[in-house]
Write a protein that binds this DNA or RNA. Structure first.
Length: 316
RNA sequence: CGCGGGGUAGAGCAGUUCGGUAGCUCGUCGGGCUCAUAACCCGGAGGUCGAGGGUUCAAGUCCCUCCCCCGCAA
């Protein structure tokens, strides 16, 4: 069976490897174009591209596959396309190319958490359970028929980074099982229940700004869900920002959100939220590196208060 | 050559402007106080000041080169 794989970030790598290890003929890999990244704006290739190159598979990097990738895909004559966090929308023209269709590996229990960042959003929303869904891609956004699903727990305190690492191999496993059953003609296939669907948007930098009026639990979930990118940060009233890497909820009597309850190397950094308080365990200053809050406070006495929310004074 | 911050004891930092004995808060080790302690008191160990070169009587500090780390923007 000729398979074309479409994926970009780390999440897709185990699936690509699994296809090859399972003996499928992966005839081509599509991934996002190399982009200038980081200091010095050096060109950087996607994890999926690196993997494909190491496996000796031809790589295609159309800017928009539905425009300048159609010919290449058609020439590969795939029986099946597999997507795993590719990052581009597939047109009907693209979907019509593979004979069997296009299977997508999605990291949520569809129809919940449609969209491009399901792992992050599940954590932000405080879910304790999630899973992998394989589906037949259709023209909508994560709306295709569900093939197989596998549930898993979200561990207490787990970050999106950690959960992604655990989910990717599970996705690979479920992908292989899905293809096997498609080949054998015994793969279940079910329409999504639109009444139960939920959709969440792409992550944005601004989502990481802490609003101390939220409950401590909500803040901690947000920190976990946005780690490592885009990350959460708090604003000091001197204009500096501190990125928060690790935080936990602490019980505490009600007080004004944003109140700095403690900020010394012994007691740690504790700030009042809308309900309870948040103890910041690891943080990172601008230009600095990630460190324990207590270490930070040893060399940086925190005399400034935190701002509850930046836009507060604007929209009144 | 995208913009910027940084590398000083095990950790986090000051000192560099204007060259002149290596400091602070902790940790660690020893001693003391205490019913006791993450508290307090006394004492000790621990530094090629990122690397190399240059200027100088003298360089953490000034000049040149290089390495490494980080933030922003993408």
């Amino acid at each position: 069976m000729r398979i074309v794989f479409l994926g970009t970030p780390e999440f897709g790598v185990p699936s690509l490897k699994a296809l090859v290890n399972a003996g499928y003929d992966v005839v081509g890999v599509f991934t996002q174009p190399d982009k200038p990244k980081g200091r010095g704006n050096k060109m950087q290739q996607s994890p999926v591209k690196e993997c494909a190159l190491s496996l000796g598979i031809p790589v295609y990097q159309p800017v928009k596959i539905r425009i300048d990738g159609v010919e290449d895909l058609r020439n590969l004559k795939p029986d099946l396309c597999v997507t795993a966090a590719f990052g581009q929308i597939l047109s009907q023209e693209i979907l019509d190319i593979p004979a069997i269709g296009t299977v997508n590996v999605h990291s949520s229990l569809l129809p919940k958490y449609r969209g491009s960042a399901p792992i992050n959003w599940a954590i932000i929303q405080g879910e304790e359970r999630t899973g992998i869904t394989t589906m037949m891609t259709d023209k909508g956004l994560d709306t295709g028929d569900i093939l197989l699903q596998k549930e898993m727990d979200i561990l207490p305190g787990e970050t999106a980074e950690e959960l992604t690492v655990r989910m990717a191999p599970l996705g690979a496993e479920l992908l292989i099982e899905t293809i096997r059953r498609l080949e054998n003609g015994n793969c279940p296939r079910e329409k999504q229940n639109e009444a139960e669907m939920s959709y969440f948007p792409m992550l944005k930098k601004e989502m990481g700004e802490i609003d101390w009026r939220m409950t401590a639990h909500e803040i901690v979930c947000r920190v976990r869900g946005l780690t490592p990118w885009p990350g959460c940060y708090m604003l000091l009233d001197n204009g500096e920002t501190l990125k928060i890497w690790k935080a936990e909820e602490m019980e505490c009597e009600a007080m004004a959100p944003g109140t700095m309850i403690s900020a010394d190397p012994k007691a740690g950094l504790v700030i009042a939220a809308g309900k309870n308080a948040v103890r910041i365990a690891e943080l990172q200053a601008q230009g600095g590196k990630r460190m324990n809050a207590k270490d930070y406070l040893r060399g940086h006495p925190l005399t400034h208060q935190v701002s509850v929310k930046r836009e507060e004074e604007n929209n009144g």
